[in-house]
Write a protein that binds this DNA or RNA. Structure first.
Lengths: 241, 241
DNA sequence: TAGTGGTCTAGACCACAAG
DNA sequence: TTGTGGTCTAGACCACTAA
Protein backbone atom coordinates (compact mmCIF):
# COMPACT_ATOMS: atom_id res chain seq x y z
CA UNK A 1 0.00 0.00 0.00
CA UNK A 2 2.92 2.33 0.68
CA UNK A 3 5.44 2.52 -2.12
CA UNK A 4 8.83 3.56 -0.81
CA UNK A 5 10.28 3.89 -4.31
CA UNK A 6 7.58 6.17 -5.56
CA UNK A 7 8.45 9.81 -6.19
CA UNK A 8 5.39 10.61 -4.11
CA UNK A 9 6.55 11.27 -0.55
CA UNK A 10 5.78 8.50 1.93
CA UNK A 11 4.16 10.87 4.42
CA UNK A 12 1.81 12.06 1.72
CA UNK A 13 0.89 8.52 0.69
CA UNK A 14 0.10 7.66 4.29
CA UNK A 15 -1.83 10.88 4.82
CA UNK A 16 -4.03 10.18 1.78
CA UNK A 17 -4.48 6.57 2.86
CA UNK A 18 -5.75 7.49 6.31
CA UNK A 19 -7.90 10.28 4.92
CA UNK A 20 -9.43 7.77 2.52
CA UNK A 21 -10.16 5.32 5.34
CA UNK A 22 -11.98 8.07 7.22
CA UNK A 23 -13.96 9.15 4.19
CA UNK A 24 -14.81 5.55 3.29
CA UNK A 25 -15.97 4.87 6.83
CA UNK A 26 -13.32 2.26 7.61
CA UNK A 27 -12.29 4.58 10.39
CA UNK A 28 -15.31 6.06 12.10
CA UNK A 29 -15.83 9.12 14.24
CA UNK A 30 -14.31 8.55 17.66
CA UNK A 31 -12.24 5.55 16.56
CA UNK A 32 -8.67 5.46 17.77
CA UNK A 33 -6.10 5.29 15.01
CA UNK A 34 -3.28 2.77 15.22
CA UNK A 35 -0.48 4.30 17.26
CA UNK A 36 2.34 6.09 15.51
CA UNK A 37 4.69 3.23 16.39
CA UNK A 38 2.28 0.69 14.92
CA UNK A 39 2.13 2.59 11.64
CA UNK A 40 5.90 2.84 11.63
CA UNK A 41 6.35 -0.89 12.23
CA UNK A 42 3.61 -1.93 9.84
CA UNK A 43 4.95 0.03 6.89
CA UNK A 44 8.59 -0.21 7.95
CA UNK A 45 9.00 3.54 7.98
CA UNK A 46 10.24 5.94 10.61
CA UNK A 47 7.93 7.26 13.30
CA UNK A 48 8.85 10.82 12.34
CA UNK A 49 7.46 10.17 8.87
CA UNK A 50 4.23 8.86 10.40
CA UNK A 51 4.02 11.96 12.56
CA UNK A 52 4.43 14.16 9.51
CA UNK A 53 1.45 12.49 7.87
CA UNK A 54 -0.75 12.64 10.96
CA UNK A 55 0.19 16.25 11.68
CA UNK A 56 -1.32 17.28 8.37
CA UNK A 57 -4.53 15.45 9.22
CA UNK A 58 -4.64 17.14 12.62
CA UNK A 59 -4.19 20.50 10.92
CA UNK A 60 -7.03 19.80 8.53
CA UNK A 61 -9.29 18.73 11.39
CA UNK A 62 -9.69 15.08 10.38
CA UNK A 63 -8.19 13.71 13.59
CA UNK A 64 -7.07 15.01 16.96
CA UNK A 65 -4.39 13.88 19.37
CA UNK A 66 -4.79 13.19 23.06
CA UNK A 67 -1.51 13.19 24.92
CA UNK A 68 -0.77 9.87 26.56
CA UNK A 69 -3.87 8.29 25.07
CA UNK A 70 -3.92 8.18 21.30
CA UNK A 71 -5.10 9.76 18.08
CA UNK A 72 -8.80 9.79 17.25
CA UNK A 73 -11.06 10.45 14.30
CA UNK A 74 -12.86 13.78 14.73
CA UNK A 75 -16.49 14.34 13.88
CA UNK A 76 -17.10 15.48 10.36
CA UNK A 77 -17.68 19.15 9.79
CA UNK A 78 -21.23 20.05 8.88
CA UNK A 79 -21.35 21.95 5.64
CA UNK A 80 -18.26 21.93 3.55
CA UNK A 81 -17.13 25.54 3.53
CA UNK A 82 -14.82 27.24 1.11
CA UNK A 83 -11.61 25.35 1.61
CA UNK A 84 -9.18 28.20 1.68
CA UNK A 85 -9.17 30.35 -1.40
CA UNK A 86 -11.60 29.51 -4.16
CA UNK A 87 -12.68 31.26 -7.30
CA UNK A 88 -16.34 31.98 -7.97
CA UNK A 89 -16.43 29.05 -10.37
CA UNK A 90 -15.03 26.63 -7.81
CA UNK A 91 -17.32 28.02 -5.13
CA UNK A 92 -20.44 27.45 -7.21
CA UNK A 93 -19.29 23.99 -8.22
CA UNK A 94 -18.93 23.07 -4.56
CA UNK A 95 -22.51 24.21 -4.07
CA UNK A 96 -23.70 22.03 -6.91
CA UNK A 97 -24.30 24.81 -9.40
CA UNK A 98 -22.82 25.80 -12.73
CA UNK A 99 -21.10 29.15 -12.99
CA UNK A 100 -21.06 31.44 -15.99
CA UNK A 101 -20.08 35.05 -16.67
CA UNK A 102 -21.43 38.08 -18.43
CA UNK A 103 -18.63 40.54 -19.12
CA UNK A 104 -19.67 44.14 -18.52
CA UNK A 105 -16.32 45.66 -19.33
CA UNK A 106 -12.60 44.96 -19.51
CA UNK A 107 -10.34 47.98 -19.61
CA UNK A 108 -7.06 49.46 -18.49
CA UNK A 109 -7.36 52.46 -16.21
CA UNK A 110 -4.99 54.58 -14.11
CA UNK A 111 -5.01 53.43 -10.49
CA UNK A 112 -7.15 55.47 -8.11
CA UNK A 113 -5.72 56.32 -4.71
CA UNK A 114 -7.63 53.49 -3.05
CA UNK A 115 -6.78 50.84 -5.64
CA UNK A 116 -3.15 51.97 -5.73
CA UNK A 117 -2.92 51.70 -1.97
CA UNK A 118 -4.56 48.28 -1.94
CA UNK A 119 -2.28 46.90 -4.64
CA UNK A 120 0.76 48.73 -3.30
CA UNK A 121 1.51 50.42 -6.62
CA UNK A 122 1.91 54.11 -7.59
CA UNK A 123 -1.22 56.18 -8.13
CA UNK A 124 -2.13 56.42 -11.85
CA UNK A 125 -0.08 53.35 -12.82
CA UNK A 126 -1.99 51.07 -15.22
CA UNK A 127 -4.54 48.71 -13.74
CA UNK A 128 -6.84 46.19 -15.37
CA UNK A 129 -10.45 46.70 -14.36
CA UNK A 130 -12.75 43.79 -15.10
CA UNK A 131 -16.43 43.97 -14.34
CA UNK A 132 -18.60 40.88 -14.68
CA UNK A 133 -21.98 39.56 -13.72
CA UNK A 134 -21.50 36.17 -12.12
CA UNK A 135 -24.30 33.73 -12.80
CA UNK A 136 -25.13 30.44 -11.13
CA UNK A 137 -27.31 28.10 -13.17
CA UNK A 138 -28.04 31.07 -15.41
CA UNK A 139 -29.35 33.37 -12.68
CA UNK A 140 -27.43 36.50 -11.63
CA UNK A 141 -25.71 35.85 -8.35
CA UNK A 142 -23.23 38.68 -8.00
CA UNK A 143 -21.70 41.74 -9.57
CA UNK A 144 -17.93 41.53 -9.40
CA UNK A 145 -15.21 44.05 -10.19
CA UNK A 146 -11.55 43.02 -10.25
CA UNK A 147 -8.53 45.28 -10.17
CA UNK A 148 -5.09 43.92 -11.07
CA UNK A 149 -1.83 45.72 -11.66
CA UNK A 150 -1.11 45.63 -15.41
CA UNK A 151 2.58 45.68 -14.56
CA UNK A 152 2.45 42.59 -12.38
CA UNK A 153 -0.04 40.62 -14.45
CA UNK A 154 1.04 41.10 -18.03
CA UNK A 155 -0.78 39.80 -21.06
CA UNK A 156 -4.24 39.64 -19.60
CA UNK A 157 -6.93 39.56 -22.28
CA UNK A 158 -10.68 39.23 -22.62
CA UNK A 159 -10.21 35.58 -23.55
CA UNK A 160 -8.35 34.80 -20.34
CA UNK A 161 -10.98 36.60 -18.32
CA UNK A 162 -13.72 34.53 -19.92
CA UNK A 163 -11.97 31.32 -18.90
CA UNK A 164 -10.01 31.07 -15.67
CA UNK A 165 -8.06 33.98 -14.25
CA UNK A 166 -6.49 31.95 -11.46
CA UNK A 167 -5.32 29.26 -13.86
CA UNK A 168 -3.62 31.94 -15.95
CA UNK A 169 -1.88 33.45 -12.94
CA UNK A 170 -0.77 30.20 -11.36
CA UNK A 171 0.15 28.23 -14.47
CA UNK A 172 1.00 30.76 -17.19
CA UNK A 173 2.58 33.46 -15.06
CA UNK A 174 3.80 30.89 -12.54
CA UNK A 175 2.91 32.99 -9.51
CA UNK A 176 1.81 31.26 -6.34
CA UNK A 177 -1.23 32.62 -4.56
CA UNK A 178 -0.69 32.87 -0.81
CA UNK A 179 -3.59 34.29 1.15
CA UNK A 180 -6.49 36.69 1.00
CA UNK A 181 -8.11 39.11 3.39
CA UNK A 182 -11.81 39.61 3.00
CA UNK A 183 -14.07 42.28 4.40
CA UNK A 184 -17.72 41.32 4.47
CA UNK A 185 -20.56 43.72 5.05
CA UNK A 186 -24.27 44.01 4.61
CA UNK A 187 -25.90 46.66 2.45
CA UNK A 188 -28.81 47.64 0.24
CA UNK A 189 -28.53 47.52 -3.55
CA UNK A 190 -27.85 50.70 -5.46
CA UNK A 191 -29.45 51.52 -8.84
CA UNK A 192 -26.82 49.76 -10.96
CA UNK A 193 -26.80 46.61 -8.88
CA UNK A 194 -30.58 46.55 -8.82
CA UNK A 195 -30.73 46.41 -12.59
CA UNK A 196 -27.81 44.08 -13.20
CA UNK A 197 -28.70 41.65 -10.43
CA UNK A 198 -32.36 41.78 -11.37
CA UNK A 199 -33.68 42.43 -7.88
CA UNK A 200 -36.17 44.85 -6.39
CA UNK A 201 -35.37 48.24 -4.90
CA UNK A 202 -33.90 48.13 -1.37
CA UNK A 203 -32.99 44.45 -1.59
CA UNK A 204 -30.17 43.42 0.74
CA UNK A 205 -26.79 42.41 -0.66
CA UNK A 206 -23.65 40.94 0.81
CA UNK A 207 -20.66 43.11 -0.04
CA UNK A 208 -17.35 41.28 -0.15
CA UNK A 209 -14.05 43.01 -0.71
CA UNK A 210 -11.18 40.62 -1.20
CA UNK A 211 -7.52 41.42 -1.41
CA UNK A 212 -5.47 38.50 -2.65
CA UNK A 213 -1.73 38.28 -2.19
CA UNK A 214 1.01 36.07 -3.56
CA UNK A 215 3.02 33.73 -1.39
CA UNK A 216 5.61 36.41 -0.67
CA UNK A 217 2.89 38.86 0.30
CA UNK A 218 2.85 40.95 -2.90
CA UNK A 219 -0.70 42.23 -3.44
CA UNK A 220 -2.13 40.59 -6.55
CA UNK A 221 -5.74 41.52 -6.87
CA UNK A 222 -8.52 43.61 -5.37
CA UNK A 223 -12.04 42.31 -5.88
CA UNK A 224 -15.27 44.02 -4.94
CA UNK A 225 -18.40 41.91 -5.14
CA UNK A 226 -22.09 42.39 -4.41
CA UNK A 227 -23.91 39.14 -3.83
CA UNK A 228 -27.68 38.77 -3.86
CA UNK A 229 -28.69 38.08 -0.27
CA UNK A 230 -31.56 35.86 -1.33
CA UNK A 231 -29.27 33.52 -3.23
CA UNK A 232 -25.94 33.60 -1.48
CA UNK A 233 -24.63 32.83 1.99
CA UNK A 234 -20.99 32.93 2.89
CA UNK A 235 -19.79 29.86 4.77
CA UNK A 236 -16.45 29.66 6.51
CA UNK A 237 -14.68 27.38 8.88
CA UNK A 238 -12.38 28.70 11.57
CA UNK A 239 -9.92 26.49 13.35
CA UNK A 240 -8.74 26.79 16.94
CA UNK A 241 -5.54 28.71 17.58
CA UNK B 1 18.98 33.02 23.94
CA UNK B 2 17.85 29.43 23.60
CA UNK B 3 17.65 27.55 26.88
CA UNK B 4 17.99 23.82 26.32
CA UNK B 5 17.17 23.03 29.94
CA UNK B 6 13.97 25.03 29.99
CA UNK B 7 10.71 23.11 30.12
CA UNK B 8 9.63 25.30 27.19
CA UNK B 9 10.28 23.33 24.00
CA UNK B 10 13.26 24.48 21.99
CA UNK B 11 11.28 24.72 18.74
CA UNK B 12 8.82 27.03 20.48
CA UNK B 13 11.57 29.24 21.90
CA UNK B 14 13.08 29.58 18.43
CA UNK B 15 9.70 30.21 16.84
CA UNK B 16 8.96 33.05 19.27
CA UNK B 17 12.44 34.45 18.81
CA UNK B 18 12.15 34.67 15.04
CA UNK B 19 8.61 36.00 15.28
CA UNK B 20 9.89 38.71 17.62
CA UNK B 21 12.67 39.66 15.22
CA UNK B 22 10.12 40.07 12.46
CA UNK B 23 7.79 42.13 14.60
CA UNK B 24 10.65 44.27 15.89
CA UNK B 25 11.88 44.90 12.37
CA UNK B 26 15.23 43.17 12.83
CA UNK B 27 14.10 40.93 10.02
CA UNK B 28 12.34 42.92 7.32
CA UNK B 29 9.91 41.99 4.59
CA UNK B 30 11.74 40.11 1.86
CA UNK B 31 14.80 39.41 4.01
CA UNK B 32 16.20 35.91 3.82
CA UNK B 33 16.36 34.10 7.13
CA UNK B 34 19.52 32.28 8.13
CA UNK B 35 19.42 28.81 6.63
CA UNK B 36 18.09 25.92 8.68
CA UNK B 37 21.62 24.55 8.98
CA UNK B 38 22.90 27.89 10.23
CA UNK B 39 20.26 28.02 12.94
CA UNK B 40 21.08 24.45 13.91
CA UNK B 41 24.81 25.15 14.15
CA UNK B 42 24.38 28.48 15.89
CA UNK B 43 22.17 27.14 18.67
CA UNK B 44 23.68 23.66 18.67
CA UNK B 45 20.33 22.03 18.02
CA UNK B 46 19.13 19.62 15.40
CA UNK B 47 18.00 20.79 12.00
CA UNK B 48 14.70 18.94 12.47
CA UNK B 49 14.01 21.09 15.51
CA UNK B 50 14.72 24.22 13.51
CA UNK B 51 12.34 22.98 10.81
CA UNK B 52 9.63 22.46 13.39
CA UNK B 53 9.93 26.08 14.48
CA UNK B 54 9.98 27.47 10.97
CA UNK B 55 7.09 25.28 9.86
CA UNK B 56 4.86 26.95 12.40
CA UNK B 57 5.88 30.37 11.10
CA UNK B 58 5.17 29.29 7.55
CA UNK B 59 1.74 28.07 8.64
CA UNK B 60 0.99 31.38 10.28
CA UNK B 61 2.09 33.29 7.20
CA UNK B 62 5.09 35.04 8.74
CA UNK B 63 7.62 33.52 6.36
CA UNK B 64 7.61 31.41 3.20
CA UNK B 65 10.02 28.86 1.83
CA UNK B 66 11.50 28.77 -1.65
CA UNK B 67 12.87 25.38 -2.57
CA UNK B 68 16.58 25.47 -3.29
CA UNK B 69 16.80 29.15 -2.37
CA UNK B 70 15.93 29.94 1.19
CA UNK B 71 13.29 31.12 3.65
CA UNK B 72 12.03 34.69 3.47
CA UNK B 73 10.01 37.12 5.55
CA UNK B 74 6.54 37.60 4.04
CA UNK B 75 4.82 40.95 3.75
CA UNK B 76 2.63 41.81 6.70
CA UNK B 77 -1.07 41.24 6.34
CA UNK B 78 -3.17 44.36 6.05
CA UNK B 79 -5.83 44.53 8.70
CA UNK B 80 -5.53 42.11 11.54
CA UNK B 81 -8.53 39.85 11.19
CA UNK B 82 -10.10 37.66 13.81
CA UNK B 83 -7.31 35.27 14.58
CA UNK B 84 -9.20 32.03 14.60
CA UNK B 85 -12.03 31.89 17.06
CA UNK B 86 -12.71 34.93 19.17
CA UNK B 87 -15.50 35.97 21.47
CA UNK B 88 -17.38 39.22 20.94
CA UNK B 89 -15.40 40.76 23.77
CA UNK B 90 -12.07 39.81 22.22
CA UNK B 91 -13.23 40.91 18.80
CA UNK B 92 -14.19 44.38 20.02
CA UNK B 93 -10.97 44.70 21.97
CA UNK B 94 -9.01 43.98 18.79
CA UNK B 95 -10.94 46.79 17.12
CA UNK B 96 -10.06 49.18 19.92
CA UNK B 97 -13.48 49.28 21.53
CA UNK B 98 -14.87 48.23 24.87
CA UNK B 99 -17.53 45.56 24.92
CA UNK B 100 -20.45 45.30 27.30
CA UNK B 101 -23.67 43.30 27.52
CA UNK B 102 -27.32 43.84 28.19
CA UNK B 103 -28.95 40.56 29.13
CA UNK B 104 -32.40 40.15 27.57
CA UNK B 105 -33.05 36.70 28.96
CA UNK B 106 -31.39 33.57 30.28
CA UNK B 107 -33.56 30.47 30.40
CA UNK B 108 -33.68 26.74 29.96
CA UNK B 109 -35.89 25.54 27.13
CA UNK B 110 -36.59 22.22 25.38
CA UNK B 111 -34.53 21.93 22.19
CA UNK B 112 -36.35 22.73 18.97
CA UNK B 113 -35.79 20.46 15.99
CA UNK B 114 -33.29 22.85 14.46
CA UNK B 115 -31.33 23.48 17.66
CA UNK B 116 -31.35 19.78 18.51
CA UNK B 117 -30.00 18.94 15.08
CA UNK B 118 -27.32 21.61 15.28
CA UNK B 119 -26.15 20.51 18.72
CA UNK B 120 -26.61 16.83 17.93
CA UNK B 121 -28.85 16.19 20.94
CA UNK B 122 -32.41 14.77 21.24
CA UNK B 123 -35.33 17.06 20.48
CA UNK B 124 -36.82 18.53 23.67
CA UNK B 125 -33.70 17.89 25.76
CA UNK B 126 -32.81 20.90 27.94
CA UNK B 127 -30.96 23.76 26.31
CA UNK B 128 -29.74 27.06 27.71
CA UNK B 129 -30.97 30.00 25.67
CA UNK B 130 -29.16 33.24 26.30
CA UNK B 131 -30.14 36.42 24.54
CA UNK B 132 -28.04 39.52 24.88
CA UNK B 133 -27.53 42.91 23.31
CA UNK B 134 -23.85 43.31 22.61
CA UNK B 135 -22.59 46.87 22.95
CA UNK B 136 -19.34 48.43 21.80
CA UNK B 137 -18.39 51.64 23.59
CA UNK B 138 -21.94 51.72 24.91
CA UNK B 139 -23.66 51.60 21.52
CA UNK B 140 -25.70 48.55 20.44
CA UNK B 141 -23.70 46.54 17.95
CA UNK B 142 -25.49 43.22 17.75
CA UNK B 143 -28.30 41.09 19.06
CA UNK B 144 -26.98 37.67 19.96
CA UNK B 145 -28.73 34.46 20.96
CA UNK B 146 -26.76 31.46 22.22
CA UNK B 147 -27.96 27.89 22.53
CA UNK B 148 -25.98 25.38 24.60
CA UNK B 149 -26.87 21.88 25.70
CA UNK B 150 -27.62 21.99 29.43
CA UNK B 151 -26.40 18.40 29.65
CA UNK B 152 -23.00 19.16 28.14
CA UNK B 153 -22.46 22.53 29.80
CA UNK B 154 -23.57 22.08 33.37
CA UNK B 155 -23.72 24.78 35.98
CA UNK B 156 -24.15 27.76 33.68
CA UNK B 157 -25.57 30.76 35.49
CA UNK B 158 -26.42 34.40 34.86
CA UNK B 159 -23.21 35.38 36.61
CA UNK B 160 -21.08 33.32 34.23
CA UNK B 161 -22.92 34.73 31.23
CA UNK B 162 -22.23 38.26 32.43
CA UNK B 163 -18.50 37.54 32.57
CA UNK B 164 -16.82 35.17 30.10
CA UNK B 165 -18.57 32.12 28.74
CA UNK B 166 -15.50 30.80 26.94
CA UNK B 167 -13.36 31.12 30.06
CA UNK B 168 -15.91 29.07 31.95
CA UNK B 169 -15.99 26.35 29.30
CA UNK B 170 -12.25 26.13 28.78
CA UNK B 171 -11.04 26.58 32.34
CA UNK B 172 -13.85 25.49 34.62
CA UNK B 173 -15.32 22.67 32.52
CA UNK B 174 -11.92 21.92 31.00
CA UNK B 175 -13.26 21.42 27.48
CA UNK B 176 -11.11 22.38 24.51
CA UNK B 177 -12.72 24.38 21.74
CA UNK B 178 -11.79 23.07 18.31
CA UNK B 179 -13.36 24.87 15.39
CA UNK B 180 -16.43 26.76 14.27
CA UNK B 181 -18.44 26.95 11.11
CA UNK B 182 -20.05 30.26 10.36
CA UNK B 183 -22.76 31.15 7.90
CA UNK B 184 -22.90 34.82 7.01
CA UNK B 185 -25.75 36.50 5.22
CA UNK B 186 -27.19 39.89 4.56
CA UNK B 187 -30.68 40.90 5.60
CA UNK B 188 -33.03 43.68 6.67
CA UNK B 189 -33.89 44.22 10.35
CA UNK B 190 -37.16 42.87 11.72
CA UNK B 191 -39.28 44.75 14.29
CA UNK B 192 -37.52 43.32 17.34
CA UNK B 193 -34.03 43.97 16.00
CA UNK B 194 -35.04 47.46 14.92
CA UNK B 195 -35.98 48.38 18.47
CA UNK B 196 -33.18 46.60 20.30
CA UNK B 197 -30.44 47.71 17.93
CA UNK B 198 -31.87 51.22 17.78
CA UNK B 199 -31.86 51.52 14.01
CA UNK B 200 -34.37 52.71 11.44
CA UNK B 201 -36.85 50.53 9.59
CA UNK B 202 -35.35 48.50 6.70
CA UNK B 203 -31.77 48.96 7.90
CA UNK B 204 -29.41 46.26 6.67
CA UNK B 205 -27.89 43.79 9.13
CA UNK B 206 -25.24 41.11 8.92
CA UNK B 207 -26.63 37.78 10.11
CA UNK B 208 -24.02 35.40 11.47
CA UNK B 209 -24.82 31.89 12.58
CA UNK B 210 -21.96 30.18 14.29
CA UNK B 211 -21.73 26.57 15.32
CA UNK B 212 -18.79 25.92 17.62
CA UNK B 213 -17.41 22.45 18.25
CA UNK B 214 -14.98 20.94 20.72
CA UNK B 215 -11.68 19.44 19.68
CA UNK B 216 -13.25 16.01 19.17
CA UNK B 217 -15.99 17.51 17.03
CA UNK B 218 -18.78 17.46 19.63
CA UNK B 219 -21.09 20.42 18.93
CA UNK B 220 -20.84 22.89 21.79
CA UNK B 221 -22.80 25.96 20.91
CA UNK B 222 -25.09 27.50 18.34
CA UNK B 223 -25.04 31.29 18.11
CA UNK B 224 -27.26 33.49 16.01
CA UNK B 225 -26.27 37.14 15.75
CA UNK B 226 -27.57 40.20 13.95
CA UNK B 227 -24.95 42.90 13.55
CA UNK B 228 -25.70 46.49 12.63
CA UNK B 229 -24.35 46.92 9.11
CA UNK B 230 -23.43 50.54 9.75
CA UNK B 231 -21.17 49.63 12.63
CA UNK B 232 -19.80 46.19 11.87
CA UNK B 233 -17.75 44.59 9.12
CA UNK B 234 -16.57 41.03 9.25
CA UNK B 235 -12.90 40.60 8.42
CA UNK B 236 -11.29 37.26 7.73
CA UNK B 237 -8.04 35.92 6.44
CA UNK B 238 -7.90 32.83 4.27
CA UNK B 239 -4.70 30.94 3.68
CA UNK B 240 -3.72 29.04 0.57
CA UNK B 241 -4.36 25.30 0.49
C1' DT C 1 29.29 23.63 -8.05
C1' DA C 2 27.73 25.03 -3.61
C1' DG C 3 23.92 25.98 -0.82
C1' DT C 4 19.04 25.51 0.12
C1' DG C 5 14.81 23.34 1.52
C1' DG C 6 12.26 18.47 1.23
C1' DT C 7 12.25 14.02 2.85
C1' DC C 8 13.63 10.22 5.75
C1' DT C 9 15.94 7.21 9.27
C1' DA C 10 16.67 4.83 13.81
C1' DG C 11 17.12 5.70 17.61
C1' DA C 12 16.25 8.41 22.46
C1' DC C 13 14.03 10.41 26.77
C1' DC C 14 10.00 12.82 28.54
C1' DA C 15 5.18 13.61 30.53
C1' DC C 16 0.89 11.89 30.62
C1' DA C 17 -3.16 8.56 30.85
C1' DA C 18 -5.13 4.35 32.17
C1' DG C 19 -5.28 -0.06 34.13
C1' DT D 1 3.54 -0.50 34.74
C1' DT D 2 2.64 -0.09 29.88
C1' DG D 3 1.56 2.44 25.96
C1' DT D 4 0.72 6.90 24.03
C1' DG D 5 1.94 11.29 21.92
C1' DG D 6 5.69 15.32 22.45
C1' DT D 7 10.22 16.50 21.73
C1' DC D 8 14.86 15.95 20.05
C1' DT D 9 19.22 14.15 17.88
C1' DA D 10 22.80 13.43 14.21
C1' DG D 11 23.10 12.02 10.57
C1' DA D 12 21.62 11.00 5.22
C1' DC D 13 20.22 11.60 0.21
C1' DC D 14 17.37 14.18 -3.01
C1' DA D 15 15.80 18.00 -6.24
C1' DC D 16 16.14 22.51 -6.99
C1' DT D 17 18.31 27.29 -7.57
C1' DA D 18 21.80 30.42 -8.54
C1' DA D 19 26.36 31.61 -9.48
Amino acid sequence: MINKNSPIPIYYQLEEKIKGQIEQGELQTGDMLPSEREYADHYAISRMTVRQAISKLVNDGYVYRKKGTGTFVAEKKIEQPLQGLTSFTEDMKARGMTASNRLIHFKTIPASTYVAHSLNIPVDSPVYEIQRIRLADGVPMALETNFLSATLVQGLSEEVVQSSLYDFIENKLNKKIGHATQIIESSIVNETEMELLEVKKDSPVLLIERKTSLEDGTPLELVKSSYRADRYRFIINMERN
